[in-house]
Simulated assay, not measured.
Amino acid sequence: MKWQSALAIYLLFWAFSVFLVLPFGVKTSEEAGVAMVPGQAQSAPHEFDVKRVMIRTTIVASLLFGIFLANYIFGWVTTETLDWVN
């Protein structure tokens, strides 16, 4: 696999992982014990830490990409194993 292809696949894993990581560790203003701003939704997060989300996302994406790359190299799951028509 070319390094450009590996980078593109890693970036796809990273973009997908953002949506997996976002809901974890979020507190609403009510849970944080802070008064809500007028017009604020009750479910809105009190504080958003971009650095923490990026670190968590990078860890999750790296693990998923590592599994993908190991499968690519060792061939654990191939199209032949997924072919149920036979």
Rank of each mutant, 00 (worst) to 15 (best):
1 M>Y: 05
1 M>L: 12
1 M>I: 07
2 K>C: 03
3 W>A: 07
3 W>V: 10
4 Q>P: 00
4 Q>S: 13
7 L>R: 11
7 L>A: 15
11 L>S: 08
12 L>E: 05
13 F>A: 01
14 W>N: 00
14 W>A: 07
16 F>K: 00
17 S>A: 13
19 F>T: 11
20 L>A: 14
23 P>K: 03
23 P>F: 04
24 F>K: 09
25 G>W: 07
25 G>F: 09
26 V>L: 14
28 T>K: 10
32 A>K: 12
34 V>T: 08
35 A>E: 15
35 A>H: 11
36 M>C: 04
36 M>P: 01
37 V>E: 13
37 V>H: 13
38 P>I: 08
39 G>L: 10
39 G>S: 08
39 G>T: 03
40 Q>P: 06
42 Q>E: 12
43 S>F: 10
43 S>Y: 03
43 S>P: 02
44 A>K: 00
45 P>R: 07
46 H>E: 14
50 V>G: 02
51 K>H: 10
51 K>F: 13
51 K>S: 07
53 V>F: 05
54 M>E: 08
55 I>Y: 10
57 T>F: 03
58 T>Y: 03
59 I>A: 11
60 V>M: 04
61 A>Q: 01
61 A>E: 01
62 S>M: 07
63 L>S: 12
63 L>P: 03
63 L>A: 14
63 L>G: 13
64 L>R: 01
65 F>S: 15
67 I>Q: 05
67 I>E: 04
69 L>H: 08
70 A>P: 02
71 N>P: 03
71 N>D: 15
73 I>A: 11
74 F>D: 12
75 G>A: 09
76 W>H: 05
76 W>S: 06
77 V>I: 15
78 T>E: 13
81 T>A: 02
82 L>I: 04
82 L>M: 09
83 D>W: 09
83 D>R: 07
84 W>N: 01
86 N>D: 04
